[in-house]
């Protein structure tokens, strides 16, 4: 697809069988343009989904809390009864585990968001031309909205256990954006395939279930080799640990993995975005009735 403008200011679009990546400059330009022009639509779609989500529900917003709190509760009990033994944490275990499960819930939600938003928008995708970036942005927006609600729990716990509020907390909040983007990147990378094959969604449920246990969510980061590898090969670990450290201790103990994952993630996000854009017309062709 090429965009030009004629002398009388009519936008001209050409559709040919060639990949738009053959003209990368034009492609990046239109990506930027679509990103900007999709803001308003993204907001609309986001508020539509949030409204619809809570309108047909009794507990409404409570559903943002319930899953992470339930998971945390299980581990708090298991830990108290000494069934599940872990080394002592720097902050009270309930705060530690609650923080962990909330962050994990945010990550999983952002991982699923692009796949779910695109799956719920088949009709739009096959019938209407609009900047597809809006779908991704609205997905991120919903995750941010739900994350904000979830963080209220953390805030409550901080007050209850009188954990000092430091500057690190501010950075921790900012880093939650990185966590969401990490989830979005991985989710977006799987999105094109997930449109074609249901297997991806099934697989993702299994994988996130296992992933939970190899990420230091309910236990502190391992210190003995080879278990320390878990935080090297698992991209979520450095970010999740980093956020929790900054919030509770005010410092980033392991900056190198944290920043390298972040940098790789941003490059990855750009690549997955390009792939997503390129695959949309092909996906529409395959899913349209």
């Amino acid at each position: 697809m090429k965009r030009k403008t004629t002398h009388n200011n009519l936008p001209v679009v050409e559709y040919t069988p060639d990949s738009s990546l053959r003209n990368p400059l034009a492609m990046f330009k239109s990506m930027w343009k679509d990103l900007l022009s999709s803001k308003e639509l993204a907001l609309r779609l986001m508020s539509r989904d949030i409204k619809a989500q809570y309108r047909q529900s009794i507990f409404g917003i409570l559903w943002a809390f319930i899953p992470p709190v339930a998971t945390a509760f299980v581990f708090i009990v298991l830990n108290q009864r000494q069934i599940f033994n872990i080394r002592t944490t720097d902050i009270p275990y309930p705060v530690f585990v609650m923080f962990g499960t909330v962050l994990w819930a945010i990550f999983v939600e952002s991982l699923n968001a692009p796949i779910q938003t695109v799956a719920a928008s088949h009709v739009l995708l096959t019938k209407i031309t609009f900047p597809k970036e809006a779908l991704i942005l609205s997905g991120i927006g919903k995750v941010v909205f739900n994350a904000g609600i979830k963080l209220l729990i953390i805030f409550g716990l901080f007050v209850y256990y009188r954990i000092p509020i430091s500057w690190g907390l501010l950075f921790a909040l900012l880093s939650i954006v990185l966590l969401i983007l990490l989830g979005t990147t991985i989710g977006l990378a799987l999105t094109p395939l997930s449109v074609l094959y249901q297997d991806i969604i099934q697989m993702l449920t299994v994988v996130t279930g296992l992933w939970f246990f190899i990420t230091p969510v309910v236990y502190p980061p391992p210190v003995n080799f080879p278990f320390t590898l878990l935080s090297v090969i698992n991209p979520v670990s450095p970010i999740l640990i980093g956020i929790r450290d900054m919030a509770t201790e005010g410092t980033l103990n392991n900056p190198i993995p944290f920043f390298s994952v972040s940098a790789l993630m941003l490059i990855g996000l750009l690549i997955t975005w390009v792939v997503f854009r390129l695959s949309i017309p092909i996906l529409v062709e395959r899913i349209s009735s």
Binding site: M1, V12, P17, V284
Partner: peptide
């Protein structure tokens, strides 16, 4: 309207669609 891509040929659209 660009929802899908052609396999051969070329489509040119001038103006808001």
């Amino acid at each position: 309207c660009g929802l899908i891509k052609p396999d051969t040929g070329k489509i040119t659209m001038k103006g808001q669609v």
